[in-house]
Design a protein around this nucleic acid. Sequence first.
DNA 1: AGCACGATCTGA
DNA 2: CAGATCGTGCTA
Length: 186
Amino acid sequence: MIARRDFYNRNAVQVAKELLGCFLVREYKGKITRAMIMETEAYRGEYDLASHASKGKTARTEIMYGVPGHAYIYMIYGMYFMLNVVTEEKDFPAAVLVRGIKILEPGSRSKVKIGGPGKLTRHLHINKALNGHDLAMGRKLWIERPRNKKRLKISKSPRVGIDYARHCKEWKWNFKIEHETGEILA
DNA sequence: AGCACGATCTGA
DNA sequence: CAGATCGTGCTA
């Protein structure tokens, strides 16, 4: 089931937790890749010093102030793209960064784990051309909610790579799937 | 117009 | 631990 817009129109911290176990789906050159979301991070409000929106609305961050359910993609360190999902009501800047996925290879039973936000976008051919893309459309890039999401053990930690964020750096807005018990169905 | 640095990753 | 590599926001 493709996540509807109201799924995204909620508190970014809540959406970050609920995105775990969901499927990030990428259609590229006619091929569809389905990846389970394993790690996320929330960035919420201008008061969050770790968020790009802490500098206010600019050309880059405008998308975070927009309609929920759109992709916020930016380049970092001159070579990596970060994939974020815009959350919360229009005019409130918030997004969820996807930091880790697991790909269920079609046919084989092997699962490829991809940790790291820069690596997963490279693997899925996600770049700035998809910035602003509407994930609720179910085209090119979208998110599907699993049928059953039982017994997910989720761990909370401080967010990665934001030492500059003063008191905000200790907020435990990073979420990871620790164990999966049982199979999650698409 | 110039500058410092980043929600990262890789290889030594 | 340094290097890659460039868009962005800040200062002037």
